[in-house]
Design a protein around this nucleic acid. Structure first.
Lengths: 184, 184
DNA sequence: TCGTTAGCTGTACATCGTCCAGTTTAGCTG
DNA sequence: CAGCTAAACTGGACGATGTACAGCTAACGA
């Protein structure tokens, strides 16, 4: 809570360190606490110091979102890829609202997953326009469901909290319906 | 841009008037411009005057979201209800991100739609837990797709903007897949 | 007619993301 | 090794935001 450094002295920050601290902060204190100032405090640094490593908060968030997608296993079939995505999203529940807010991720890992999805769709004969449509449907469904699973659902009247397992089953069931339909 | 009133004088505000102004503001200038202060400016009133009619911004937004759902036609079958919902959401594109952020609407109209959905599901033999699951899937799908349709999609690499009509077809196709699957 | 209350204004607070101007250090060049 | 440039910081500030508090006053019920 005091000045640990005088102007000009360095703290040895790294872009990676900032990202890591952001992830920790998010995991510990939730979405509302992810603040440039809080992040700086945690790194024992003045708030603007962060801007030497990150151009803006939105970029930081984008990196965070994309980074998480690196955990997705894309070595299986389409169904497995999406189930893995769902699980990864649930494992980072605090981030899910941000995926919604920013309409998905944009970085290289997201691109990789997007490409893989198209390839897997092509493998089962879905190509071109229809493949793009299918991918869109599947992404919407997966992220949307993750959002439902990670936050107090609207559920007009239901009181039972709805277990994680039940929601997972619900997700996979809907996913199978969709995949069946897409495959015609 | 000056003080049109002295302390104590009234402006004749109404909760309804505030809501209406908020809707107009949203339609004209978009989501980022929906600010208590901008709203007050448009009503020619001090910012805090709004708090005599609305407890907080979040409540205002919730009202807005629910209000829009009044336009949904729930006199048809499940398919028609959801298509109507999709169309209504598209007609209020600026609001869609807010539906995502707040996980749907919570007011009486949302409740009505939720109840109607359960009834329509029951009509075709889907009840209990499975009906709740189905409703969840359908809501996620509909809101999620509306979000895709109303905002620059992530589309990892696609450059064609994707017409409203194409997205609508995509939506109805996915919807039919889901409904078919739900009906077993 | 008077008192109470509800609808205002004015002012202010805490918080946010981010910019500008300095200061110092690290790293490269010669 | 000397010198210079560029990058990493601090300090302070700006313009937002949502919202609380206190006062004034017009409208309304008794």
């Amino acid at each position: 809570m005091t000045a640990a450094r005088r102007p000009g002295e360095r703290a040895g920050l790294t872009r990676a360190a900032v990202l890591a601290a952001a992830r920790d902060l998010l995991a510990e204190s939730g979405l509302g606490s992810l603040t440039m100032r809080a992040l700086a405090r945690r790194l024992d640094v003045a708030p603007n110091a962060l801007y030497s490593h990150v151009p803006a908060k939105a970029a930081l968030v984008d990196d965070l979102l994309d980074e998480v997608l690196a955990e997705v296993d894309d070595s299986g079939d389409l169904y497995e890829l999406l189930v893995s995505t769902y699980e990864v999203l649930l494992a980072h529940a605090e981030l899910v609202p941000l995926y919604l807010a920013r309409q998905g991720a944009r970085g290289p890992h997201a691109a990789r997953l997007g490409d893989t999805m198209l390839r897997l769709l092509a493998d089962q004969g879905v190509r071109g326009e229809r493949a793009l449509d299918a991918r869109r449907v599947l992404i919407v469904f997966t992220i949307g469901f993750a959002a439902f699973a990670t936050h107090p659902p609207l559920e007009p009247g239901a009181d039972v909290p709805l277990s994680v397992g039940a929601l997972f089953d619900n997700f996979t069931r809907g996913l199978r319906w969709l995949l069946a339909g897409i495959g015609s």
